[in-house]
Amino acid sequence: MAAGGDHGSPDSYRSPLASRYASPEMCFVFSDRYKFRTWRQLWLWLAEAEQTLGLPITDEQIQEMKSNLENIDFKMAAEEEKRLRHDVMAHVHTFGHCCPKAAGIIHLGATSCYVGDNTDLIILRNALDLLLPKLARVISRLADFAKERASLPTLGFTHFQPAQLTTVGKRCCLWIQDLCMDLQNLKRVRDDLRFRGVKGTTGTQASFLQLFEGDDHKVEQLDKMVTEKAGFKRAFIITGQTYTRKVDIEVLSVLASLGASVHKICTDIRLLANLKEMEEPFEKQQIGSSAMPYKRNPMRSERCCSLARHLMTLVMDPLQTASVQWFERTLDDSANRRICLAEAFLTADTILNTLQNISEGLVVYPKVIERRIRQELPFMATENIIMAMVKAGGSRQDCHEKIRVLSQQAASVVKQEGGDNDLIERIQVDAYFSPIHSQLDHLLDPSSFTGRASQQVQRFLEEEVYPLLKPYESVMKVKAELCL
C-alpha cells in the first residue's frame, strides 16, 4: 500500500493539533497551500530580480507567473513527485505547466533550498508574528487579574506546605514575570531571523556568478533584492546548502521555554482548584465526569500541561538535527523538520489560546482563602504575639514557653481530632496574655502579614508589564474561544 493518505478522510490519521486544537490561522501558515504558494512567490521574486539585473526574462513571463501564483494543481504535483521522487522539481514542473512561456526560467540558477529553506524562514517569521500578540493578550488578562487582587491576602506555599502570606495578585505576578520573559525572547528570536537568500547549491553562489558572467556586484544585488522582497532586513552571508540548523534550535528553545512557563502556571491553577481557592472557567453544560456528576475538573489547565510537556520535548529534535548536518548538509534534517517545526508552533498556539481562555474567566473564592488563612495564621502570628507581650512588660522566655504549650495543644486538636485551630481562643482565655487581649485582632490582621506584596504588584505592572504590552494595544480586544 502506498504511503500517505487522504487526510480529510475519517479513515486516515490526522494530527489532533490540526484537527482538534490549533487555530485556523496557525494551521494555514503550515498548510501545503501556504507552503507551495510561497515557493511560487519566491520563484517570481527571483525572476523579477534577475530581470532587473539584466537576464533575458520578459515582462510577459513575469506576468504569467504572477497570474498563476494561486493556480496550484495539487493532484498534478503529487503525481509528479511520485514520478520524480523530488518535491521541488515536482512543483517546478507543475508551475511550468500553467506558465508555459515562463517554464524555462522558473528556478533559474537556484537549488531546492532556495524555495525550501527560504519558505521555512518566512513561515517561522509569520508563525512567530501570530504567537506574539496571543502571548501579549494572556499577559494582559493576567495583569488585569493581578491588579484587581493585588491586596487580597492568601496563604503562600513553599514545598506545598503553608508559608508566609502573600497576595493573590502577587502570586499571579510570578506567572506574568515568566511570560514577559517569554514574550521578550519570542520577539528577540523573531527579529534575529535572517533570510537564507540566493546562495546556490553549497552556499557559494557559483551558479549565479556564472549567470551574471562573473559580476560579483550583481550577485550581491540579486541576494539583497530577493531578501528585501521577502520582507527581511538581512540575509546570511555564510550558508551551506541550507541555512544553519542552529536557527531551528533557537526558535524551538524559546517555544519550549514558553511551554515550561505555561505548565507551571496551569499546575498552580490545578492545585488551587483542589484547594477550592480558584477555578478555571466551567461552562453551564460542561460535564466533569461521566460517573461523578459533582466533579469540576480543571480540564483546560490539564490540557495545557499535557501539550506543554510535548512542546518542551520537541527542542531535542533540532538539537540532534543540527549535530548531524555533515559538511554542507545531509538530508537527516528533512523529514524531522517537516514534523517538529509545525508541531512546535501548533502546540504553542494551542496552549496560548487555551491559557487566554482560562485567564479571561478565572474565578476566585475569597471566603475559602480566608478560612485557610484562619487555619494557619495563628501559628504564624506567634512571633508577633511574643513581641507584643514583651512590649507590655512580659518575659520573652516565659511567653515563648506559654505559646509553645498552647500551640501544641491547638495542633493536637487540628491533627488528632480534625478540629479547627483554636490557638487564639486559648490565648484569649489565658490570664497571662490579658495585657494584649485587646491587640489580638490587630495582630491577626492578614494584611499585616503580606509585606509589600501589593506595592510590588503595582510597581511591576507599571514599570515592566504595561510598557512591554504597549506595541500590542491594537490587538488586545480579541477574545479566545474554545470549541473543545
Score class of each variant (00 low, 15 high):
residue 276 K to L: 08
residue 332 D to I: 00
residue 284 K to A: 10
residue 420 D to T: 06
residue 417 E to C: 10
residue 416 Q to T: 09
residue 352 L to Y: 08
residue 271 L to Y: 04
residue 327 F to R: 03
residue 453 A to Y: 05
residue 345 F to T: 12
residue 108 L to M: 12
residue 405 V to H: 12
residue 93 H to L: 08
residue 167 T to H: 05
residue 119 T to L: 09
residue 326 W to E: 04
residue 278 M to H: 03
residue 313 T to I: 10
residue 383 E to L: 03
residue 186 L to D: 02
residue 427 I to P: 03
residue 372 R to Q: 05
residue 156 G to P: 03
residue 465 V to F: 04
residue 200 G to C: 02
residue 88 V to Y: 00
residue 311 L to S: 03
residue 148 E to K: 12
residue 236 F to I: 09
residue 269 I to K: 00
residue 250 E to G: 14
residue 451 G to R: 03
residue 15 S to P: 13
residue 311 L to G: 03
residue 393 G to D: 10
residue 330 T to N: 05
residue 247 V to I: 12
residue 61 Q to E: 10
residue 445 D to N: 13
residue 462 E to V: 10
residue 66 K to F: 08
residue 287 I to T: 14
residue 424 I to Y: 15
residue 51 Q to V: 06
residue 72 I to W: 14
residue 214 G to R: 11
residue 67 S to E: 14
residue 336 N to S: 14
residue 90 A to H: 04
residue 477 K to L: 14
residue 147 K to C: 10
residue 462 E to Q: 12
residue 251 V to L: 14
residue 31 S to Y: 01
residue 215 D to Q: 15
residue 48 E to Y: 04
residue 271 L to K: 03
residue 273 A to Q: 09
residue 187 K to W: 09
residue 213 E to V: 12
residue 292 M to D: 00
residue 301 S to K: 03
residue 354 T to D: 05
residue 112 S to Y: 01
residue 153 P to S: 06
residue 257 S to F: 07
residue 362 L to P: 07
residue 189 V to W: 07
residue 170 K to T: 00
residue 169 G to S: 04
residue 178 D to L: 00
residue 398 D to I: 08
residue 455 Q to V: 10
residue 316 M to L: 13
residue 301 S to M: 13
residue 207 S to H: 00
residue 456 Q to M: 09
residue 292 M to Y: 01
residue 296 R to M: 11
residue 426 R to K: 11
residue 178 D to T: 06
residue 239 T to Y: 01
residue 249 I to D: 04
residue 288 G to V: 03
residue 138 V to S: 14
residue 450 T to G: 04
residue 189 V to E: 09
residue 303 R to S: 02
residue 195 F to Y: 14
residue 290 S to E: 02
residue 26 M to C: 06
residue 237 I to M: 11
residue 45 W to R: 04
residue 387 M to K: 05
residue 152 L to W: 08
residue 254 V to R: 11
residue 49 A to K: 01
residue 3 A to I: 15
residue 64 E to Q: 12
residue 343 E to T: 13
residue 317 D to I: 05
residue 45 W to T: 06
residue 180 C to E: 06
residue 64 E to G: 10
residue 473 E to H: 13
residue 16 P to I: 15
residue 30 F to R: 01
residue 415 K to G: 05
residue 327 F to K: 03
residue 264 K to R: 14
residue 312 M to N: 02
residue 57 I to W: 04
residue 382 T to E: 03
residue 120 D to T: 07
residue 332 D to F: 04
residue 360 E to K: 03
residue 287 I to R: 02
residue 302 E to G: 01
residue 417 E to M: 12
residue 168 V to L: 09
residue 106 I to K: 00
residue 237 I to L: 12
residue 331 L to Q: 04
residue 85 R to E: 00
residue 46 L to T: 00
residue 408 Q to P: 04
residue 484 L to C: 13
residue 64 E to L: 11
residue 66 K to I: 08
residue 180 C to M: 14
residue 16 P to G: 12
residue 72 I to T: 08
residue 365 Y to D: 02
residue 78 A to Q: 13
residue 419 G to D: 09
residue 35 K to M: 13
residue 484 L to G: 13
residue 439 Q to I: 11
residue 348 A to T: 14
residue 358 I to P: 02
residue 88 V to D: 00
residue 292 M to C: 02
residue 379 F to G: 02
residue 321 T to K: 01
residue 435 P to V: 07
residue 389 M to G: 07
residue 309 R to V: 12
residue 433 F to T: 07
residue 429 V to Y: 07
residue 233 K to P: 11
residue 382 T to M: 12
residue 471 P to C: 15
residue 479 K to Q: 15
residue 290 S to Y: 04
residue 97 H to S: 10
residue 146 A to S: 11
residue 389 M to A: 05
residue 194 R to P: 14
residue 65 M to G: 04
residue 461 L to Y: 05
residue 128 L to N: 14
residue 83 R to Q: 13
residue 385 I to E: 03
residue 139 I to F: 03
residue 87 D to W: 04
residue 38 T to H: 05
residue 196 R to Y: 09
residue 287 I to H: 06
